[in-house]
Design a protein around this nucleic acid. Structure first.
Lengths: 141, 141
DNA sequence: GTACGTGCAAATACTTTGCAGATAA
DNA sequence: TTATCTGCAAAGTATTTGCACGTAC
């Protein structure tokens, strides 16, 4: 099995693109993040790493990585767009409305339900999105 | 069983609000729409009905109706926010990535899956969102 | 060397706010 | 009458674009 860096490098090269320092740092940040990141989050994290990247560049880079299917958008909350590395295992999220904590949700029931929707519609289903929100254990008190 | 207009009027009055001409027209538009509407959509539809409403007013009105739980936000597509009348039956949507058509998806499997997620998490689940996207029959050709 | 990538400034799009006048109850 | 509602202008944000320079390959 190939590792993420190999797959990434291969995809980029195949389309005549480069693995620049900025791009590499951004991808690493996204890959190692425990939760989806907003544009603002990415800028902040890169800054902490000593790599100041212009916001315009991050917008463009996210756009590019989405097209390369290396990133996917997560609609966790209507206010902000979040992005997540796309080569991990498929999963959904639950977000705490009070403190903003985010956890992965993986459920075979969800995957089965998705299959049923696919079977029951005349559409060719290409994408689906499911997110949950509520109160985390700590915030319920 | 009470009709929508009655419930609406009751809720508004209860909180000291009014059923103005603009508000009534906007609600009717949303209630009778076959699909969720964006802010822009609402403005256009009202205009067609001969009721020109300022965009600021629509933003404020949507905000207000969301707080009154008469409207809910539908995240059909990351580019735009859509809203739907909230007193109908609970359902989800599938959207055609090619022509933008939108259909309702109702699936007992989805509801069961939601229950399983609720049962399997320590979170108190308050909200969930599921949307599908793909190609409608016509666009598959 | 050349096409891709980046930063900066400016443009555009989207949404919110402040305030004065209009209107439902 | 009076608190809610509305429109207009302006302020804030978020996102995109143009262009010149920088850099991976």
């Amino acid at each position: 099995m190939s590792t993420n860096p190999e797959i990434i490098e291969q995809r980029l090269k195949a389309s005549g693109h480069r693995l620049t320092k900025t791009r590499k740092a951004l991808l690493n940040t996204l890959i190692s993040s425990a939760r989806p990141l907003s544009i603002e989050d990415m800028g902040a994290q890169l800054k902490v790493q000593g790599i100041a990247v212009n916001k315009t560049t991050i917008y463009r880079e996210v756009d590019f990585l989405l097209k390369q299917k290396l990133l996917e958008e997560v609609r966790l909350d209507p206010e902000r767009r979040y992005y997540e590395f796309a080569l991990g295992t498929h999963h959904h999220h639950i977000r705490c409305l009070s403190c903003g904590a985010i956890e992965d949700v993986s459920s075979t029931a969800l995957e089965q339900a998705t299959k049923q929707v696919k079977a029951g519609t005349m559409y060719q289903v290409i994408d689906h999105m499911m997110e949950f929100a509520g109160l985390c254990p700590a915030c319920q008190r």
